[in-house]
Amino acid sequence: MDNSSKQASNFNSSHTSSHSSHSNHSNHSNHSTHSNPPINLKNFGTPQSHRILIDLPRELIRLDRDYRAGEVWQFKSTFPMELEGRIGVDEFKIAVDHINNILLQAFNPWMAVLDHLLDTLSLYTLSWFKQSHFQKHISSLEKSLNHINYSSFNPAGLNILNPQSIAFLYLEIEFY
């Protein structure tokens, strides 16, 4: 992987913000954001030029949280302009709605009541042996993301990242 450092530097210098006007969170030098113009759209609308999951993505598109349903973790399914030409609006909406639906199921209140009561009555030992309803659905999210990425997003040069690492505050889509 001799080109990894080159890719990294390319990623650092050309990172932009996107839909949510925010960029990647890790390992960036701060001065680049201040010296460069913050909005750089030169990569969008171009064909895929990097290899998915092997190279660093050229851009990172962030979908904001959607609070219209309350405090339940949901993501906005508004189609970001940056994805135009890569993926269809319907395909995008199906994917995001699917992710939102999994999260909505994970937040089933009665299952949470059941899990908490059983856990308390068993002196908090039940959670050592049994996954809660919430955890089951959150781990099924990983599988669904694999599915969505494999069948529709990766062929278009995009990759949805698992939002677990950023506390479900954004849904990040890598743009290669």
């Binding site: 030409g85 990766n154 040069g157």
Partner: peptide, 27 residues
């Protein structure tokens, strides 16, 4: 998996055509 993504690019162009995308994304 990467091969799949390369092959499938040609298919998503058709989809892009259906949805009105006029960009050639087969890079």
């Amino acid at each position: 998996f990467y091969n799949a993504s390369r092959y499938r690019n040609s298919n998503s162009i058709k989809l892009a055509g259906l949805t009105g995308g006029d960009l050639d994304i087969r890079g």
